[in-house]
Design a binder for these strands. Structure first.
Lengths: 337, 337
DNA sequence: CTGAAAGCGCTTACAG
DNA sequence: CTGAAAGCGCTTACAG
């Protein structure tokens, strides 16, 4: 028991008095095994605690039953939920997760990460790094070999050569802004995310569109660029109040910045929502526990995560069916908030 | 380019006019290769984009260069930081991460998870699920085969059969409580985490110890059990003020609950910190942006994550050196907050 | 410095 | 229903 190496399929076969491929049939639940043989082999497996070596299995099958997941910012709300939902769904479907976290989305070297993951023989790759700067140019140009399924998560500028699953960020901006309009707001400011982020630009677009639909102008002085943090949300309100003293509402592109805004409002003695109404995005756990509760746009991150895995699984199956890929038009799936 | 399968070591060998094991030497940076040969092989590798199949390599070497990481609650502060730090450090050291997330720490089946991870041939396992209820009894009894390195992360009740890296939770309680005492507080309440959590009990113990060191009694009416959420922090303050009207300070066992407390204090018109001082734990990003800034105990989570990986790596190396394990006494490493 | 042989632990056709 | 053979893509001794 001390130095016993893990048993192999050969050990099990010997102990059960059958060949290794019969054991293989048993562990793969194939039907063509005599009931009695099945029983005996299973008994041995139970006794020895045998578990097939996934490396060996992967080598012969040409698949690892692992999904490569590339993400940024696990400490933030969105990514942690997405990765959590992906892992859960993947586990249910028999996939393991090989996680790669990147430090800076803007300078990420997609090529080397994809190559590394493929060397690990992952069956498919879920790329959940947001588009920042031109860090997805590789996905538009198709400069990366089409070898092995890659799913892009999150919206991106232009058309991807790869299938994409994303939540409609412009709709988030529209929903939030419409809510503020419905509440009677006339001068609605916005704190955006960093403008290098496509998601941030989309939320801004939704805000602008909704304002302009009322016949008013989406003035530049109503826009402050933020960086997703509480601190900048705070500064943003001071800026907005300076440039637009009539301000009566703000759309914060995420909840963190919304909290900063509320902090600032409190500091300068403006009541929320009476003086200034605020809407955020994310529905973080704290949202409903502030003075007053924060109104926020909910992102269906869990649903999106489930969809991510189902989609990549379908891609994997498809690519295994037809070795000669039919070059199916990449589908762009968009989920509504 | 369309249907090109990935090249193998054999393809590279053929193209370079050498044997496969010469290529093997090159990709493993072994010194005994003629400069000219080295050059030629590297050239072919560059041209073909060859990357060794890690499954095959793992099969022969008996190691996958993957670490199994088991965690709970990626959406919470602590776990997301720990996992992030582990991934970063692992990547630097050449390990991939196979992530397993569990849904309920109390009912987790350690045996089946460890078995599954080992079937994937991970080189070592980092078990970062907190001790809740008796979900670590397996680690005390050693009922699990000692096969393959396992590192436990987080403090636990009693002695583990496996090495452990943890942050001193009792010290967190002591630091926080002492800070409140130093600020002049006389009646210091506590909102604990769920008492089924060992970490929560340790923070409570630190609070109790520090109170009693002053010669006062750590009365039961000063203790409210929470569940780590903002909502319960809020309720907790109401409860405490009822049972102890003299209350002038509270130690919240995490920042979320501290925020809830502050919300409640605001609601009932008590000033912080004048009327009631609050200290939390975690140092979440929002801490410093509330009215007033929250004082909090910082957990060195990133340091701990780095230490986790270095420790498991050392365990892996040791177990590979001596096949006949010397049964080294498991070390229990404790990091101070 | 380099190569022929064997083997890691499985699965995949192929026979029977 | 079951087994002998070959092979997945590497690395590890072992020769030279």
């Amino acid at each position: 028991m001390a130095k016993s190496k893990r048993p192999t399929i050969r050990d099990v076969a010997a102990a059960a008095g059958v060949s290794t491929q019969t054991v293989s049939r048993v562990i793969n639940n194939r039907p063509d095994v005599a009931p009695e043989t099945l029983e005996r082999v299973q008994e041995v497996i139970r006794e020895t605690g045998y578990a097939p070596n996934m490396l060996a299995r992967g080598l012969t099958q040409g698949r690892s039953h692992q999904l490569g997941v590339v993400a940024y910012g696990l400490e933030y709300f969105g990514p942690s939920r997405i990765v959590g939902a992906i892992e859960r769904t993947a586990a249910e479907m028999g996939y393991g997760i090989s996680l790669t976290l990147i430090l800076d989305p803007e300078t990420v070297d997609a090529d080397s990460i994809l190559t590394g993951l493929r060397a690990r023989q992952v069956d498919g790759i879920i790329w959940a790094v947001p588009e920042v700067g031109d860090n997805r140019s590789w996905a538009r140009s198709g400069g990366i070999d089409g070898n092995g399924p890659v799913l892009l998560v999150g919206p991106m500028n232009g058309r991807s050569q790869f299938p994409t699953v994303s939540i409609d960020n412009a709709a988030m901006g529209r929903l939030a802004t419409q809510h503020l309009l419905d509440g009677g707001a006339r001068h609605i400011g916005i704190v955006t995310g960093p403008m290098s982020w496509w998601e941030a630009r989309q939320r801004l677009a939704g805000w602008r569109e909704t304002i302009e639909a009322t016949g008013r102008e989406a003035e530049d002085c109503l826009i402050v660029e933020g960086d997703w943090t509480v601190a900048c949300g705070e500064q943003a309100l001071y800026r907005l109040l300076e440039t637009c003293p009539d301000l009566d509402a703000v759309f914060a592109s995420n909840d963190q910045m919304a909290l900063g805004l509320m902090h600032a409002a409190h500091t300068v003695g403006r009541q929320i929502p009476e003086d200034i109404a605020v809407v955020g995005v994310d529905n973080i756990a704290e949202s409903s526990h502030f003075w007053p509760p924060l109104t926020t746009v909910n992102q269906p991150l869990a649903d999106a995560g489930v969809l991510d895995v189902h989609t990549i699984d379908a891609m994997i199956e498809r690519s295994r069916q037809a070795r000669r890929v039919l070059e199916p038009a990449p589908e762009q799936i968009v989920v509504e908030p």
